[in-house]
Design a protein around this nucleic acid. Sequence first.
RNA 1: GUGGUAGUAGCUCAGUUGGUUAGAGCACUGGUUUGUGGUACCAGGGGUCGCCGGUUCAAGUCCGGUUUACCACCCCA
Length: 464
Amino acid sequence: MLHFAMFQPLPGFRDFFPERCAKRNHIFRLWTQTARSFNFQQYDIPTLEPLELFTQKSGEEIVGQLFNFTDKGGREVALRPELTPSLARMIGSQANSLKRPVKWFNIAENFRYEKQQKGRLRSHYQLNCDVFGEPGVGADAEVIATAVGCLQVFGLSGADFVVRLSDRNLWLHFLESQGKTGDDAMAVLGVVDKMERLPREAVIEKLEPLFGNKAESFLQQAQSLIAIRSLDELKQFFEGLELATELKQTVDERLGQWSSLLDWLEGLGVTDVLRIDLGIVRGLAYYTGFVFEVFEKGDDGQLTGRALCGGGRYDHLVKKLGYPDMPAVGFGMGDVTLTDLLESKGLLPDFIIAPEIYLVVGGDHERKIALHDAQRLRALGYSVEYPLKNQSFGKQFKLAGQSGARFALIYGEEEVKQHQVKVRDLQTGQEMPIMSVYLVDALGQFFAEGIPAHEPEGADPSKL
RNA sequence: GUGGUAGUAGCUCAGUUGGUUAGAGCACUGGUUUGUGGUACCAGGGGUCGCCGGUUCAAGUCCGGUUUACCACCCCA
């Protein structure tokens, strides 16, 4: 039985045909360009890692979501589901010698063994930008501005997305004022993270084990905190709480950092896409301070449930993995949801994949000359194409036109005999014979200005 | 992992109450007598109708299972 024709990519994996690959590379190119404009430096990590690297950070539960296996040497290994642990390893291993701040970025494929659905595949590419070694808000601002830049570079604007900025520290301070610390506080944050998606009764149900009969009143307070959209309101909210002196001082300091962060962000010009929104806490346990997520806006201006990007501060992760203390803040942005959004907005053009020059060749003798020129032009960086078998002139012109090339170079018997090449502009139909020795110079000029209506001096064979 | 919907050519789809060798458009290949192109015309290749089983004289069509995709949960980055 022939089953070859039935081969498909594995569930959640994608083939990239040239058109799609061109779009993907366009996204990678603009991400890279933006990250470099902020002077992030590119690094890379292995695709396959020891399983333990991931279980140490996230616990054994994560194994159910990994592509993992035992290799031929008996090692337990896994395809990376994310790059943060590998990155932390790289940073940590040289923590004391890296010049700070360390600003690194990476674009890489990540894998998760999960059932796929819209916007979430088993393999996706992710841009990650991280700043290490700077505990101050300048680093948070840098990361947020980079994330925003990585969306704006595609033509997206505040009409298309919103950065929701939150702060786990402030949440923890608030929870401390409500008598919740440690594991209890983390459990509450876990509920807050899901609050948006759950009906009110379900939220109450989850809060009751923690707050008993005060669950209702806590929820009301939490909701008023989440509804806050300005720093002044935030200050008022905390002034309204009965805080112990020490805690009040901590909160005041934190609000001062908020003020400072917003100043940085204003300077960076990203406040118009920013929204203070304590409804975001990010599920991952390792986040420690400011956190943010970028959400897509629907046509009605309301947020959709689709996050384009998420990030925040994770000051203790490097140390937790056994390396020196190293403050960190970063974000990740996936290609799947971004591609969906850009296509829905018409911001991902079809890329024309074409040669620049197409050779039209007479016979075997002419082909030798033509191929020689093709190699010269390729060495100069031109993309050059020609038929790989004998074809009639008519057919070759057809192919030249279909190829999308700007110019055809015609190597007929007459031209070659006179050491000439006829250059044809495939857009205008304008043609001009050029002496072979001047071909490169002439093409350089033609690509810039087109073929002139009259022959330029020096290109006229009669003057040789 | 749990449900809902769907699967006919590379793509978009048509296919009557089950009834001869399953069609169209686009795409692809060749040609319209080898020096001027994207159009037009002619011809061609390509499908065991997702897969397996069942009902029937007869299944693309009806039934069951399975697989894949999409959507919603669960969970998470």
